[in-house]
Design a protein around this nucleic acid. Structure first.
Lengths: 97, 97
DNA sequence: TAGATAGTTTGATAAATATCTAATTATCTA
DNA sequence: TAGATAATTAGATATTTATCAAACTATCTA
């Protein structure tokens, strides 16, 4: 279910924009929301999807919830991509679904 | 729309399995379908999604339609991933959506 | 402690998607 | 050319998803 949730999370332009914003620095939910026109409820939904895919982490700081990018997923994604595209060797089999 | 269709195409386990099958060698629609339990109509739908994302190519050989992996998308995907995760430099901006 | 502020959760709805069966198209061969 | 085979397209349905408004939770501060 992890590869599944990862690609589904990445398959939405708003969520990719969130990730790009978090590349520079961690940001609170409100700071992120300021870059979008959809409601904060909808933003929360996207935060949840990204968290479920382990693409972001959250920490409360007082009234704010601060989100940060989990860069370690980058490695996972790379591995998945190799699994999908790399010419396979004799007897090699995939773990992924 | 291209990044969009790419991730959406990859967000389905049946479609990822199709790509993995095509890593080794090109295969006809029927040969691919033999590895699945869903109907051939459903398989055709998945082929269409993968073709729209430019992940596979198709060529008719007599009665068969032979599908092959388009490995050049691997590079596109790598670029998109860097855009999403790589720490950005001063004044740098993304082209993606 | 009573607002005010930041954010999430709930419930509803419209749009997208995966699947199926049935019908259609393209090609081969007897 | 008629039937058989390979595959796709069309139409229908159930599930998932993105979004919103409203209600709720957590924290701060006067």
């Amino acid at each position: 279910m992890s590869t599944e949730s990862l690609f589904k999370a990445l398959a939405d332009p708003n969520r990719r924009k969130i990730l790009r914003l978090l590349k520079k620095t961690s940001l609170s939910a409100g700071e992120i929301a300021d870059h979008f026109t959809i409601t904060r409820a909808s933003m929360s939904h996207h935060f949840n999807v990204l968290k479920s895919a382990d693409l972001i982490r959250s920490n409360r700081h007082g009234q704010n919830i601060v989100y940060s990018l989990n860069v370690s997923v980058f490695e996972d994604l790379a591995a998945i991509m190799f699994d999908l595209f790399k010419p396979s060797l004799k007897g090699e089999n995939s773990n992924e679904d």
